[in-house]
Amino acid sequence: MKILSNRGQAMPPSPIRKLAPFADQAKERGLHVYHLNIGQPDIKTPETFLQSIKNFNQPVLAYGPSAGLPSLRKKLAEYYNRFDINVTYENILVTTGGSEAIIFAMMAICDPGDEIIVPEPFYTNYNGFAVEAGVKIVPITSKIEDDFQLPPIESIAEKITDRTRGILICNPNNPTGYVYSRQELENLREIVLKHDLFLLSDEVYREFVYDGLTHTSILQLEGIEDRTIMMDSVSKRYSACGARIGMIVSKNQEVIEACLRFGQARLCPPTIEQIGTEAGIDTPQEYLDEVIAEYNERRNVMVNMLRQMPGVVAPMPKGAFYLVVKLPVDDADKFAQWLLTDFNVDNETVMIAPANGFYSTPGLGKDEVRIAYVLNVDDIKKSMNILARGLQAYPGRTI
């Protein structure tokens, strides 16, 4: 008897969370685990966000509009206009997290079996979203030796078939921290025009760029306004990962209307969290300035310590709060599990995410991990010391 659907069997486990049972067991043994595996910041959620939720006093928590609260959509349009992203609230659909935004976008432009080209390594859940949407992800490989910059545009063109519907990027990138340049985006613009494709961009980390760089949105590109779909979220910007408020932004109203129909099937995004988000947009810029400065310091401390470890290759990320690191180990999956099951320093250990799950091409990322610098500087220093000692003691070390 066939129990599961092909879709159910094809749905991949999350490399970010799949080692969670080993972390739980480590904690049960009395170990403290430093979580470097997941993008859950320890930054406080803005008081403006939380206070608005505390002040909610409606007698009935009713259904909201499927597209999201109009007042929030208008406030979001004002927010984007600050960055020369000229949209109106009609161009914005509120979703239940950025994840739903990506799934809706995939389903709006693709039929089952259609293809989307994605630079790898990419956010691992794109694999799961594609399975849910019946979409095939076609990877083009970015290399750690090149700091994960966009591969040559010719290599993208070679992947285009009659089933290709779009190109999806994450900018700034999760998991690599790479920030795409204006020129790279212009190159993508040309290939999108030439082959009549959509350009999709996950811009959840748009606020977090370093070293004087400026983030460029695909919605700032001219001549492809009807081909661009941007996905966003409040999870990272306001350290409100549990709020589950995302958005799709596009000037292609057919795309917005299709996504709205998907949204009607799930009724509406969560009301209270939308109220928090609307107030959160009014958070003073000083909050974000302090958060960016904090992440910049964490990044510098982590990368400098990683580069002191023999055999470790650690590019300097330019945005977000992740980096992909090459380790001198035989298998990053085994090493990450070993850290939780067989190793500790003074009853403390670290949890990291094996990077093979961030690739679509089999065999890639076997000796790489994604590390999130979401802990305070003192905890980063402690966790990096534990990682360094773990690398020295690991039986599968390769150098």
Results as ranks from 00 to 15, higher is better:
residue 2 K to Q: 14
residue 3 I to R: 15
residue 11 M to V: 07
residue 15 P to M: 06
residue 18 K to A: 10
residue 22 F to W: 10
residue 22 F to N: 05
residue 37 N to Q: 13
residue 39 G to W: 07
residue 44 K to C: 14
residue 45 T to V: 01
residue 60 V to T: 12
residue 61 L to C: 08
residue 68 G to N: 06
residue 72 L to T: 07
residue 98 G to R: 00
residue 99 S to I: 15
residue 99 S to H: 15
residue 120 E to M: 09
residue 129 F to C: 07
residue 139 P to V: 00
residue 139 P to T: 08
residue 140 I to A: 05
residue 146 D to F: 09
residue 148 F to K: 02
residue 154 E to D: 11
residue 163 R to K: 15
residue 163 R to C: 09
residue 169 I to Q: 06
residue 170 C to H: 09
residue 173 N to F: 05
residue 180 Y to A: 04
residue 182 R to L: 10
residue 185 L to I: 05
residue 189 R to M: 04
residue 193 L to K: 15
residue 204 V to R: 05
residue 207 E to Q: 11
residue 211 D to W: 13
residue 214 T to D: 14
residue 221 L to A: 12
residue 224 I to L: 02
residue 232 D to F: 11
residue 233 S to A: 12
residue 236 K to W: 13
residue 239 S to Y: 00
residue 242 G to C: 03
residue 243 A to R: 04
residue 247 M to D: 00
residue 256 I to V: 12
residue 272 I to H: 12
residue 272 I to L: 14
residue 278 E to K: 10
residue 283 T to W: 07
residue 284 P to Y: 07
residue 292 I to Y: 04
residue 296 N to R: 13
residue 297 E to D: 09
residue 303 V to S: 08
residue 305 M to K: 15
residue 306 L to T: 01
residue 310 P to N: 07
residue 311 G to V: 08
residue 312 V to Y: 13
residue 312 V to R: 09
residue 317 P to L: 00
residue 322 Y to L: 07
residue 323 L to P: 11
residue 329 V to Q: 00
residue 330 D to H: 08
residue 332 A to R: 01
residue 335 F to W: 12
residue 336 A to F: 03
residue 343 F to M: 03
residue 347 N to G: 09
residue 350 V to E: 02
residue 355 A to E: 08
residue 359 Y to R: 00
residue 360 S to H: 10
residue 362 P to C: 01
residue 367 D to Q: 06
residue 371 I to D: 04
residue 385 N to Y: 12
residue 385 N to M: 10
residue 391 L to V: 02
residue 392 Q to W: 12
residue 396 G to R: 05
